[in-house]
Amino acid sequence: MRPRTLALPLALLLPFALSGCGLHSGTEIPEDLVPGSLGQGQPLKGVNLTIASKNFTENVILAEMIGLVWTAAGAHVIDKTNISGSIGARQAIVSGTADAMYEYTGTGWITYLGNTEPITDPQKQWQAVHDADLKNGVTWLPQSRLNDTYALGGNATNIAKYHLKTLSDVAALSHSNPSAVTLCVDNEFAVRDDGLTGMEKAYGMSIPKSNIRTMDAGIVYTTLSAGSACLLGDVYSTDGRIPALGLKVLDDDKHFFPNYNAAPVLPTRTVQRYPQIPALLNPLSAKLDNTVAQSLNGKVDVDGQDPRAVARQWLIDQGFVKPKS
């Protein structure tokens, strides 16, 4: 549901696929942190645990946060991040070969649990996923405010020119001035029910087919930044390239796009065996939102930093952990 990869620095923004299983996959996370506000008394001392993630920047960073908090709490943690595809990462949790990762409520509800209609209220969406997934032996801990969903964005100057703030404004413009609404969209967004077609229907947009260009997801961002080929394009709401390229995101005022709030998921038996884990991860999730995610994702996708190093520094800055002296 989130087909993105770790990216190169801004000068080389075209996406690429990493070979292998991950930058650190299969290795043990160095035990070079001690508790800050999290992990006091090292409640996981001597415990062996494994983290997993999908193969895109944000999900790797979030998984590394889990692993680093656990090491500060005394655990020995194996890094199996950057698994190719949502289904592979999901299977690692269901089978118990991994003990935790961050998953997205919309992905859980639609992709794994087979529902077709998203739930508009984020908390009700989480609760429904939480309750339904227990039968699969999967426990969802409380979600964060980080909502990695689709959005429409564009060059800030162009958006200001047409006084656009919401997707309803885009719909109105598509009727009053059809030639003005030009879209650059990635190939997947163009065909998904929760993408272009559904959005046009939900908002009553009237966009000529000739005004819609499809392209690789990474090129959408750079094209929007240039501001000449397209007024708007599909972006991920937590992507670090949004602030880096000075893009403006419009409000989904009818709440069409599903909620994809990030939450830790674990095999239920892991939570039962180590009931101290939620107290370690809940404060972490409470601090995560789209602004934080954009900043951290940008450090990797724009500046070329290592995901674990980015996660580590953020945890230290928040006072969750401390470097071992």
Rank of each mutant, 00 (worst) to 15 (best):
N297T: 15
P43D: 06
T182I: 10
L23A: 15
K322E: 08
D148S: 12
L113E: 09
R192P: 00
D193L: 07
L284P: 12
L23P: 13
K209W: 05
Y104W: 09
A262F: 03
P258T: 08
E117K: 13
N155E: 02
G39Q: 03
A160D: 10
L18D: 14
L196R: 02
D253P: 03
N290T: 11
A286S: 14
Q272K: 13
Q91F: 01
P267K: 11
K248S: 07
N282M: 12
T97K: 04
D79H: 01
I87T: 08
M199C: 09
Q42G: 10
P283A: 14
A151D: 00
L14A: 15
C21D: 15
S95K: 06
K161R: 15
L18F: 12
Y260F: 13
G106Q: 09
L250R: 02
A75S: 04
K161H: 11
Q276F: 11
A98W: 01
V34N: 07
Q143G: 01
L68S: 06
K161G: 04
W70M: 10
S144T: 04
I159M: 08
Y274K: 09
S95I: 05
R273V: 09
Q125P: 00
L38S: 07
L146M: 08
L62W: 08
P9D: 14
Q125A: 09
R241N: 04
V302G: 09
V292M: 11
L146E: 07
A63K: 04
I93W: 00
S237M: 06
D194I: 09
T81G: 01
T116H: 11
S53I: 01
K322W: 05
E64T: 03
K124N: 03
D289M: 06
K201N: 12
V185Q: 03
R145M: 04
G39Y: 09
Y150M: 02
L245D: 02
K124S: 06
V310I: 14
R4Y: 14
N147Y: 01
L18E: 14
L10P: 08
K161I: 05
P118M: 05
V302E: 05
I242N: 03
G114A: 08
P43K: 03
A309Y: 06
P307M: 01
